[in-house]
């Protein structure tokens, strides 16, 4: 799987949404499934999938799929 596919899978399973909904433009708190509770599930899934540890600023700033990729890129995960 490519990193993008892994990311889409992690988002879809953490938020319990269809993979087709996981697009760059998808934003935190714009769908009921991506609320603050699910956000912590998502963060844990991304950390596990990419073997990274995100700090508080990372998870606070992670307000869209696009930004999630940018943050993971800082941790040497290339998209």
């Amino acid at each position: 799987m490519t990193n993008n596919e892994r990311l889409v899978t992690a988002f879809a399973s953490s938020l319990n949404i269809d993979a087709s909904q996981v697009v760059d433009e998808l934003e935190y708190n714009t769908i009921p499934q991506w609320d603050s509770v699910a956000h912590m599930v998502l963060v844990a899934a991304l950390e596990k999938e990419f073997d990274v540890m995100l700090d508080m600023d990372d998870i606070i700033e992670m307000s869209s799929v696009k930004i999630a990729k940018e943050i993971l890129a800082k941790h040497d995960v290339a998209f």
């Binding site: 708190n29 603050s36 540890m53 995100l54 700090d55 508080m56 998870i59 606070i60």
Partner: peptide, 21 residues
């Protein structure tokens, strides 16, 4: 407002805990 609440709370409390979760 909800986003600002989260951000301010984290900024405030992390001054006691540090930024590592």
């Amino acid at each position: 407002t909800a986003a600002l609440q989260s951000k301010v709370l984290v900024s405030l409390l992390s001054s006691f805990t540090g930024k590592a979760r």
